[in-house]
Computed example of a mutant assay.
Amino acid sequence: MTEAKQKLGVLCSGRGTDLQSIIDAIGREEVDAEIAVVLTDKPEAFALQRAERAGIKAVCVNRKQYEDREPFEEALIEELEDAGVTLVVLAGFMRILTPVFVRHFAGRIMNIHPALLPSFPGAHAHRDVLAYGVKVSGCTVHFVDEGTDSGPIILQAAVPVLDGDTEETLGARVLEQEHIIYPQAIQLYCEGRLQVDGRHVRILD
Results as ranks from 00 to 15, higher is better:
Met1Phe: 03
Glu3Leu: 02
Gln6Met: 10
Gly14Arg: 09
Gly14Thr: 10
Gly16Leu: 09
Thr17Cys: 05
Leu19Met: 11
Ser21Glu: 00
Ile23Thr: 11
Glu29His: 15
Ala33Val: 00
Ala33Gln: 03
Ala36Glu: 13
Val37His: 09
Glu44Asp: 07
Gln49Val: 14
Ala51His: 12
Glu52Arg: 15
Gly55Tyr: 10
Lys57Ile: 05
Val59Asp: 03
Cys60Lys: 06
Gln65Thr: 12
Gln65Pro: 06
Leu76Pro: 07
Glu79Val: 01
Ala83Leu: 04
Val85Glu: 06
Val88Met: 12
Val88Trp: 07
Gly92Ile: 06
Gly92Tyr: 10
Phe93Gly: 06
Ile96Val: 15
Thr98Met: 13
Pro99Val: 12
Pro99Cys: 12
Ala106Lys: 14
Gly107Ile: 09
Pro118Thr: 04
Pro121Lys: 08
Ala125Ile: 06
His126Arg: 12
Arg127Leu: 13
Asp128Val: 00
Asp128Trp: 07
Val129Thr: 03
Val136Gly: 09
His142Tyr: 05
His142Ile: 01
Asp145Val: 06
Gly147Cys: 10
Thr148Val: 13
Ser150Asp: 09
Gly151Thr: 08
Pro152Asp: 01
Ile153Thr: 07
Ile153Phe: 00
Leu155Lys: 10
Gln156Arg: 15
Ala157Thr: 09
Pro160Cys: 00
Thr166Glu: 03
Glu168Lys: 09
Thr169Ala: 03
Ala172Gln: 14
Val174Lys: 08
Glu176His: 07
Glu178Met: 08
Glu178Leu: 08
Ile180Tyr: 11
Ile181Trp: 10
Ile181Thr: 07
Gln184Ser: 13
Gln184Lys: 10
Leu188Arg: 01
Tyr189Ile: 00
Cys190Ile: 05
Arg193Asn: 02
His200Asp: 12
Val201Arg: 01
Ile203Leu: 03
